[in-house]
């Protein structure tokens, strides 16, 4: 792990700075998400204070930093809670799609034959559908059993990303399967499961982190699109930027800019940050793209030199 970070630090050019900027912005969002209950003045579903409703469409002010919207929500609180929702959905969907996609890809690539054919066919079929359409279909299907919450949204997005991990992992497995060390493992008497777990897994997951960060940005976009179209997380379940944007659209046409600006800005910032992390990781961690930084070697000064300068 240490060598991984050293490799990143020793990369030449912008890649390192791209990564750094992305990480810093993402960290800010993570801090807000974690500290949401303390940072946000109101709850995400709170429209009343001491029995009195909050003002409707109040402009940004000292009390309501980002103003309020047409549903009597405090926009600043919604944005902060929205960061928590976004990160929850991203983490959940990534974890589930990696946990399903990676083992499926390894098994498919290693076992081969009809098992592989069928899995590749199914995954290609899923992959060929427009991702948003797929997410909408799944959120419809999941709304019944799971309701309009974070889990349902995360699972709908998961369905989109499983084929991506499956593909990448399956293809690397197919080439790794022919490696001598896999045959050596067989010659040692390892069971197929052991070969997959101990010999293939470690060598094929290396592309997953980069794909994961790139997908994180994409997942956030899909989540917002679902919310914008009304198929995502319901406002009383969690705060979600896409939903807030769609609510604020009419007001924006009337010249009320604050309900759209702040959730939109948050969305764009986080997507950009995650993309920067993904690209930065890709260029620093991938030895084919990475350019090493040359650092001057400084020798300790010799004593005569010191005397001469003196």
């Amino acid at each position: 792990m240490g060598s991984f970070f050293r490799g990143i630090w020793n990369t030449k050019g912008q890649a390192r700075w791209i990564l750094l900027v992305g990480v810093v912005i993402t960290l800010v969002f993570i801090v807000f998400a974690v500290l949401a209950p303390w940072v946000a003045p109101y709850d995400f579903n709170q429209t009343k204070l001491d029995g009195a409703k909050l003002p409707k469409l109040a402009p940004p002010s000292g009390t309501y930093w980002f103003g309020t919207n047409d549903q009597f929500y405090d926009i600043y609180s919604r944005v902060v809670w929205g960061a928590r929702t976004a990160l929850e959905v991203i983490v959940l969907s990534l974890v589930i799609s990696i946990v399903i996609g990676v083992p499926l890809g390894i098994a498919s690539g290693f076992i081969g034959g009809w098992f592989d054919r069928i899995l590749v066919f199914v995954n290609d079929a899923i992959y060929s559908l427009p991702s948003l359409l797929l997410a909408i279909v799944f959120s419809f299907l999941l709304r019944g059993p799971l309701g309009g919450g974070v889990t349902a949204a995360a699972l709908s997005i998961t369905a989109v990303y499983i084929p991506q991990y499956f593909r990448v992992v399956r293809n690397t497995t197919v080439s790794a399967r022919e490696a001598t060390y896999v045959e050596a493992a067989r010659a040692l008497g390892a069971k197929p499961f052991t070969i997959m777990r101990k010999y293939l897994f470690g060598n094929v997951v290396q592309s997953v982190p980069v794909l994961g960060t790139l997908n994180a940005a994409d997942a956030l976009g899909t989540l917002a699109a679902l919310g914008f179209l009304g198929f995502g997380i319901q406002p009383n379940e969690a705060s979600e930027w896409g939903y807030d944007l769609s609510r604020a659209l009419d007001d924006a046409q009337a010249g009320t800019w604050w309900p759209t600006l702040f959730p939109g800005l948050a969305l764009i910032l986080l997507i950009t940050a995650l993309t920067l992390v993904g690209e930065g990781l890709n260029e620093t961690a991938n030895p084919a793209l990475r350019r090493r930084r040359l650092r001057p070697v400084v020798f300790p000064r010799r004593e005569q030199d010191e005397e001469r300068t003196r």
Partner: peptide, 19 residues
């Protein structure tokens, strides 16, 4: 395999790089 074992031609490829 506990009785019959093999040494491979290419030592660079015969060891799992992540072990």
């Amino acid at each position: 395999r506990t009785d019959l074992q093999m040494v491979f031609q290419d030592p660079h490829a015969a060891l799992n790089p992540s072990m």
